[in-house]
Nucleic acid binder design. Structure first.
Lengths: 157, 157
DNA sequence: GCTAAAGTTCGGAAATTTCTGAAGTCTTAC
DNA sequence: GTAAGACTTCAGAAATTTCCGAACTTTAGC
């Protein structure tokens, strides 16, 4: 396998992963940009690098980078007096992504509680909502332990 | 609070929950139909019931019900020689939904492995992909135990 | 078998999301 | 201070998703 073939495969894999990240909840452009951060051979990238690689407009890259920054998946490097800003994937990007996805659970719980307040205890809906609440409360209870176990494993390495 | 106010609140809560389910990955119409299954005061519902409640076309309901059936969130009841098919929320709907959402993780892992195959071990991308793979493999390892603990808690009740 | 109600399918309209491109702002270097 | 490059913003175009509705299929009841 020569170098060109490898590069081709690398970016094919990147686009495939972008599709999955997209299915997992990320916006399409955010997913593609995140894939660049993952698959680039460089330690850091600039917005221009990303725009070139994906052949998309600077505006799109700007928006996606802003989103990824605000969700804590990437970080801006303390720029050494450079003209261009440099960014890179954060070390704990994946636990972060996992955690933010679980904020949805919180909102779900609030909705179930509103529903239970609007139904009497004899109502089948009241019972159903109770079961739903129980499950998601269980999930939230389990979350901290899960992340702690992950961090514990990291320290060993 | 009189009966009408309660009904109004009930379905307001239902629509709110539908929005959250939508944000959590479900299609818009599937989410709204699932909310009806949760919030209805009846034990079971027919497609006609759903269409009336949401004021949407029979076609839309048909599509959404088909999806919810295939993902195991609802079930068709062994119809007692009736003209209309009856459906209801499955008892283990929420663990099921949770598990299906985690099939995304499997696909993600496959993509990381393809990426690692296309990069050499000296490449920064190789290292990044390795970290991503480690985290999601960890998650998959934790999943069975999590569901087992949930089932254990259910049996006690 | 016929009828009528229930459910399904699918083409295209409508609505929403997503991206671009151009204009504007900020920063750096000279 | 000025010019040039990097980044941001936003209105509108493009693409995609989503839904309706009409035609079609199936099934229960007679």
């Amino acid at each position: 396998m020569n170098e060109q073939e490898c590069e081709q495969q690398r970016w094919q894999a990147a686009e495939r992963l972008a599709l999955v990240l997209n299915a997992g909840g990320l916006q399409r452009m955010s997913a593609r940009v995140l894939a660049v951060f993952l698959f680039t051979g460089a330690e850091t990238v600039t917005m221009g690098d990303i725009a070139d690689r994906l052949s998309v407009s600077a505006g799109s890259v700007s928006g996606a980078v802003k989103t990824l920054l605000s969700t804590g998946l990437i970080e801006r490097l303390p720029a050494p007096g450079s003209r261009r800003e440099h960014y890179r994937l954060r070390e704990d990007a994946w636990p972060t992504l996992f955690s933010t996805q679980n904020t949805v659970v919180h909102v779900m719980l609030q909705a179930t509680q509103a529903g239970m307040a609007a139904t009497s205890s004899g109502d089948p809906a009241h019972h159903r909502l109770g079961r739903m609440r129980d499950f998601y409360e269980f999930l939230l209870e389990e979350l901290p332990g899960l992340l702690r176990r992950w961090q514990g494993r990291q320290e060993v390495t």
